[in-house]
Simulated scan of single mutants.
Amino acid sequence: MMLVALTPSYQIAAIVMSFFLSFWNLFSGFLISRTEIPIWWRWYYWGSPVAWTIYGLVTSQVGDRTDPVEVPGLGDVPLKDYLKSFLGFEHDFLGAVAAAHVAWAVLFCFVFAYGIKYLNFQKR
């Protein structure tokens, strides 16, 4: 809504929105590794569907690969070990990530259906 207020029309806001949303996601903690987030803020990471999506995408695509990755100061590290030690991503946790996505979908559908039911049956 702030973006619509800053632009002359909602059409321009829709165009500019793609830049701002990616910029805000970059700096809102979704792309910071879990190991770098302070311990008292990790609840926010675990409660975020965006964080679970990034975790699932990275681990399902490259989480089991052992290709060497050059890390400055450490030399070559296998990709699987790099993801586990630096980002906290484990390929074995992929089943829990899929279950979390299903749980988010079921919860969202339940809340949405209840909200529609509640809004439709209000006395006016």
Rank of each mutant, 00 (worst) to 15 (best):
W40L: 09
S28L: 12
L26F: 14
R42C: 02
Q11D: 09
S85F: 12
W46I: 09
A105I: 12
Y82T: 05
F121A: 05
A100E: 01
Q122P: 00
K117C: 01
T7K: 10
G75F: 06
Y55Q: 01
I39W: 10
K123D: 09
W40Q: 11
W46H: 14
A103E: 02
G115C: 05
S22H: 12
F86N: 10
T7M: 15
V69G: 01
I54T: 03
V111A: 11
I54C: 02
Y10W: 15
L87Y: 15
A51V: 07
P78E: 08
A5F: 15
R124M: 09
K123A: 10
V50P: 00
D92I: 09
R65T: 06
P78D: 08
W43P: 00
G56C: 04
L83A: 03
T53A: 12
E90H: 08
T7A: 13
I32N: 05
F89S: 02
F20D: 01
V58D: 01
T66W: 12
D81F: 11
G75K: 10
R42F: 05
F93C: 01
V71T: 10
A99G: 04
G88R: 08
L87D: 02
F23N: 04
L21E: 10
W43D: 03
S48W: 06
P72M: 12
R65S: 07
L57D: 01
L83N: 04
V106H: 03
G73L: 11
A98V: 13
R42D: 01
F112P: 00
V97A: 15
Y44M: 13
K117N: 05
V58Q: 03
P38H: 05
V97Y: 04
A14N: 14
A98S: 05
G56I: 11
V111Q: 06
A105Q: 06
W46G: 04
I54N: 03
L21S: 06
W41S: 07
F19W: 13
V111C: 03
W24F: 14
L31V: 06
